[in-house]
């Protein structure tokens, strides 16, 4: 046996608070991202992604503070996204306890950030997150920014291939077409990227059922990221893992 497939809950955080509510009634403070992440750790999550979406120039400070607080309560690897524009930002978050930093629009604006980050901290710390949207049947995907509001016109596949060359250690593939739909991940996107690149793929956007996760893994994902299925859904981490294990997928239990 080799590595386990990773199950990754994702938390959107603004000004230190979880953006949407959650189903968890037994938390002292359901809006505290660190308490929620610690709960997911106890429930068997393999990793956590925090996206800081604080809408201000304070974001680097709020994201770094989040990383520091998480180090006290979260004993699985965690990634911080949002608020990372420079190598100095990366350093601040890694020093504060984050294991990886996720970059999206900052990488598009300054691709060299991936080279510099990988050189200084190692590729394993540099996660390239891409919001991809289909052009039309059979003609590929384009890279979007700002949560799908800005189309860069760039081909997503070419961008990911470049990202790997520049030193990204992992991709988050977020499908803008399936995000929030709970109808499953964009499997075509996953399999095309898996064919063309060699670093782990984290599938994101569209999970509504553990079978969607099974399909993503079969398409080539090494990890699956989800938010609402865990925050509001009927599925616990353990429940998801049980379904994956039944399908013959190696998971940590």
């Amino acid at each position: 046996m080799g590595l386990c497939i990773r199950i990754i809950p994702c938390l959107d955080v603004a000004a230190g608070r979880v953006v949407k509510g959650t189903k968890f009634k037994d938390l002292r403070d359901a809006g505290d991202p660190v308490e929620l992440a610690a709960l997911y750790d106890h429930e068997g999550a393999d990793e956590i992604v925090f996206y800081d979406i604080t809408a201000s120039h304070e974001r680097r400070a709020t994201a770094t503070e989040l990383a520091r607080r998480a180090a006290e309560e979260v004993f699985i690897p965690y990634t911080i996204g949002g608020g990372v524009r420079t190598v100095e930002d990366m350093r601040a978050m890694l020093r504060a306890g984050a294991d990886k930093v996720s970059i999206n629009s900052a990488a598009v604006k300054n691709p060299d950030l991936m080279n510099k980050g990988a050189e200084r901290f190692g590729s394993q710390c540099v996660v390239l997150s891409v919001d991809a949207k289909r052009r039309g049947a059979g003609s590929g995907w384009e890279v979007y920014l700002n949560g799908g509001r800005v189309n860069t016109g760039r081909d997503a596949l070419e961008w990911l291939v470049e990202g790997e060359k520049r030193g990204a250690g992992e991709f988050v593939l977020n499908s803008m077409d399936s995000d929030g739909m709970a109808t499953g991940y964009d499997l075509d996107l996953i399999s095309v990227v898996a064919e063309r690149t060699n670093i782990p793929i984290i599938a994101s956007g569209g999970a509504g059922h553990p079978d969607h996760m099974v399909a993503a893994v079969e398409a080539g994902a090494s990890a699956v990221l989800a938010a609402s299925i865990f925050h509001f859904g009927e599925w616990s981490i353990a429940g998801v893992k049980e379904r994956l294990a039944e399908s013959g997928i190696p998971v940590r239990r």
Partner: peptide
């Protein structure tokens, strides 16, 4: 795949 990264 190197590094060996993840749960084992």
């Amino acid at each position: 795949k190197v590094p060996h990264m993840g749960w084992n």
